[in-house]
Simulated assay, not measured.
Amino acid sequence: MQAEQRRQHDLVVTGASGRVGRLLAAGWARSGVPVLLQRRGDAALTQGLDELRWSPLEGAAPLIDRVQRHGAPRAMLVLAGATPGTGRDLSLNRPLTEACLAAALAAGIGRVLVTSSSAVYGGGRAQPWGESDPAQPTTPYGEAKAAAEAACTLWRARGLEVCCLRIGNVAGADALLLRAGGPLAIDRFADGGGPVRSYIGPGSLARVLRALACAPGPLPETLNIAAPVPVAMTDLASAAGLDWRWQPAPPSAVARFTLDCRALAALVPFDDAESTAATIAAQWKDCRTPT
Rank of each mutant, 00 (worst) to 15 (best):
Q47G: 15
W284C: 06
T14Y: 03
A151F: 06
A273C: 15
V229M: 05
V268D: 07
A206G: 03
M233G: 02
W244I: 06
L96A: 02
V229L: 06
L90F: 06
G181E: 14
C261V: 13
D174G: 09
A104W: 06
I186F: 03
T276V: 04
E51H: 10
L52H: 07
S117N: 04
A61P: 10
C287S: 08
A157Y: 10
H70I: 07
E4N: 15
A25K: 01
G122M: 04
Y121M: 00
S252K: 10
T289M: 14
G168I: 00
V208K: 02
A151I: 08
A190Q: 15
A106N: 02
A249W: 04
D174E: 12
A151Q: 05
L259K: 00
R74I: 11
Q47C: 13
T14F: 05
I167M: 08
P269C: 12
V254C: 11
E274L: 08
T291K: 13
A278E: 08
R207L: 07
A190S: 15
T276Y: 02
A104L: 13
G59E: 05
E274Y: 04
L205F: 11
L37G: 03
V231Y: 00
L79K: 00
G124D: 04
T279D: 06
W244A: 04
E143W: 08
R207H: 09
I280V: 12
E143N: 09
A44V: 15
T14C: 09
F189R: 05
R69H: 09
A206T: 01
A206P: 01
A185Q: 15
A237Y: 00
R156I: 12
G182P: 09
G21P: 03
L165W: 02
V33N: 07
Q38Y: 13
G18C: 10
R156Q: 14
D243W: 03
V20L: 08
D243P: 02
L160C: 12
V35N: 02
M76L: 15
A273L: 15
P62M: 07
R197E: 08
T46L: 11
A61R: 11
D133V: 06
V196K: 03
T258H: 01
L105S: 09
D42Q: 15
A60G: 12
S204D: 15
L223Y: 00
S55W: 10
S132G: 13
L36T: 03
Y141C: 08
D286V: 11
P228M: 06
A282Y: 05
E131H: 09
S55Y: 11
R188E: 14
A106R: 01
A25S: 12
S198V: 04
A232Y: 10
G159L: 10
G21T: 05
R6W: 14
D10C: 12
G15N: 07
V78K: 00
A173L: 10
G85Q: 07
A278W: 03
V33D: 09
F257I: 02
G168P: 00
L90V: 07
A150Q: 12
G71T: 04
P202R: 02
R158S: 11
T222P: 06
Q127N: 12
S31D: 13
S91E: 10
L49T: 04
V114Y: 00
R94G: 03
C214Y: 11
A190W: 14
A16E: 02
G122V: 03
A26P: 04
A226M: 02
V196F: 06
I109P: 00
E4I: 13
L267Y: 09
R74G: 09
S117P: 03
G21R: 01
D50S: 08
G21Q: 03
D271H: 14
C152V: 05
